[in-house]
Design a protein around this nucleic acid. Structure first.
Lengths: 154, 154
DNA sequence: CTAAGACCTCAACTAAAGTTGAGGTCAAGA
DNA sequence: TCTTGACCTCAACTTTAGTTGAGGTCTTAG
């Protein structure tokens, strides 16, 4: 594979190795690189070589995506990491904490939604215009004058 | 606005009325129609007229989208509704129950993720290759031979 | 009757997140 | 040396969920 120092860990990883270890496609790694989410050095032969830390970044990216955060936002968060060598535990912890807040919010939203749905199942009220699922701010039903507000805020 | 029978409710809604009441853009309603998510009759002058029930459908669509369900899946669910006039409460209730299951699953996933993150904040382990957040199946860390499995299953 | 505002269609455009392919280089084993 | 598999770049294509605009019709209040 690659030249390995005395002990057993290759110093750098090729794009294929990163792909295999992280589970994302090579093309995706290229893509992430164009988006500034990850970085690589090049060999004399112009091939990418990644520091092992890239695996952490990729993991972070996938986890964050899974929570529904856009690559742009993820890039912004990653940009707050020191560009210098290796981010410390506090760096990751800070980001983790930020994601945790995101997560908490999303969970809370989903729960509210689910509880509303529960009510709806009982009463069939998804078909009732004043349903609080549709109109969570307790505004009056859809025959009122104003525009109806939906949960979706986009 | 439109000709209204004795009592006060317009029988049908124009696209603009639906847009105002549902909070989605006219172009979006057109778009939903091309995707078969909603249906309309036409006036002699070729303008769309919607049954009031369309508001329910649109609400349902937005709520489902908010939960992260694709329009295609929503369309499939809506397709199980009777094409005949007005879906009854049981119809909506059935769909609601289905969504509830979806929701429950998503909430559970997010919670698992959050709990893992909690651990990570304590130990900074997002930077540690064996982190269970990255490797939830308790496979061994990233120096093992095989590909690393991520949470993201896509 | 006429002007304004709502509506119509259709095509083109956008953005996100990648994937696919063509055409060419690099590295390593037989 | 030769060939195979991994890499490289760059452009084009894909899907989802819409939005925007051009060019034209309807409807309604004044």
């Amino acid at each position: 594979m690659s030249r390995v120092p005395q002990h057993g860990l290759p110093m750098t990883l090729s794009v294929g190795e990163v792909a295999r270890r992280s589970g994302v496609a090579v093309s995706t790694l290229h893509f992430y690189e164009t988006k500034g989410l990850i970085r690589s050095e090049r060999t004399v032969g112009n091939q990418r070589r990644y520091a092992r830390a890239v695996l952490r970044r990729v993991s972070f990216i996938r986890v964050a995506q899974r929570v529904g955060i856009s690559l742009a936002d993820i890039a912004a968060a990653l940009a707050t990491l020191p560009v210098t060598a290796a981010p410390g535990r506090e760096d990751w912890a800070r980001l983790s904490a930020a994601w945790r807040a995101e997560l908490d919010e999303r969970i809370a939203q989903l729960k509210k939604l689910r509880d509303a749905l529960d009510d709806c199942i009982g009463c069939g009220c998804l078909s009732i215009d004043r349903c609080r699922l549709r109109n969570p701010n307790d505004r009056l039903g859809d025959d009122g004058a104003g525009p109806q507000r939906l949960l979706v805020k986009k």
